[in-house]
Design a binder for these strands. Structure first.
Lengths: 169, 169
DNA sequence: ACCTTGAGTTGCTTCATGCAACCCACTACT
DNA sequence: AGTAGTGGGTTGCATGAAGCAACTCAAGGT
């Protein structure tokens, strides 16, 4: 036994960072989690189906599902009695992750899909295979990163203990 | 020594899954990696600055930067001789991750920012604080997940060994 | 002859993942 | 009645990853 106790070294949490990117990652940033959400958006609901499609370890899947339920991304609802069995359904909060998954998919289609996109999206409204283009919520122009300047919002807090740092967003 | 060798249990790679979401996560899905990219998009370039802003362990930061360089998201370029020092700059591939980070930020602003968005985006073209809205690349209508049907693309491959499974995207 | 700076590397400790085996509540067959 | 099957997990163990502090290395400054 040493006089000084060793600090418990668990993975750093992003939850307290004053940044919505970091806080989102706290919810869906772990290994496997985004793929679970992807499959849920695709219609998967049951433990066994997640497990079979993903090839994820059962204990890890159980832990991730619990966590997503706790964070309000999924709800666990019974789908039969005798024996009682549950399935996992997306909440509105979970369904809203569609944008994140779509952005990831499009980046992957462009940069890490040597054989072309494995899946394409058919827009039923116009009947074409399409991609998502981000436009300005106010003027409708296509958004280009260079034309956007980050400014402080109501939840702003400087990084670190003092105020000597700039914002991160 | 046992007759059967224990399998090396490293974290499952997503690289071989026929899905652009999974392949993207292979590049930017690890703990800390998206925050490094966020800061890089914000203008951070040097090891010490990443380290100080993120509070990440130095060995982990070094490993992540190496990985991002290897995957072509960053390039390592000297910024001075005597002694030679390098900085990390985003490539086009890296800059294109802006969409993913923006989607994460907007989700976080909506669902996990009790005090409101820490950072807002000012669109210099129209002068307003705005958000990104995904619209159809063909018809320009706002995209709603229910109106999009996933179809097979050129890179399609069924999950698993046989063809008995359906696509994942 | 030291102290400082930027950028890592090394050692060691604990956490997270992967894997296989096991458990439990029932239902269905024989 | 006894046994096998099914869906949904839990338990134990081995190894990779994350956190932390200390150390290195090549200059430059004083």
């Amino acid at each position: 036994m040493q006089p000084t106790t060793l600090a418990a070294v668990r993975r750093t949490s992003f939850a307290d960072m004053p940044c919505s990117v970091a806080r989102s990652l706290e919810v869906v940033g772990e290994w496997w989690t985004p793929l679970i959400v992807r499959d849920a958006l695709f219609g998967v609901r049951r433990f066994e189906e997640f497990q079979a499609r993903l090839g994820i370890a059962r204990n890890v899947l159980a832990q991730r599902l619990d966590q997503l339920v706790e964070e309000g991304v999924l709800v666990r609802v019974p789908y039969q009695e005798r024996p009682v069995r549950h399935e996992y359904r997306l909440t509105d909060k979970g369904r809203d992750l569609w944008h994140v998954l779509t952005a990831l998919r499009q980046w992957g289609d462009r940069w890490v899909a040597p054989d072309g996109p494995p899946v394409r999206l058919l827009h039923e409204r116009c009947g074409r295979t399409v991609t998502a283009v981000p436009v300005c919520s106010h003027c409708g122009e296509e958004l280009r990163p260079q034309e956007l300047r980050p400014t402080r919002g109501p939840g702003f807090r400087p990084i670190g203990v003092g105020d000597e740092h700039i914002a991160t967003g």
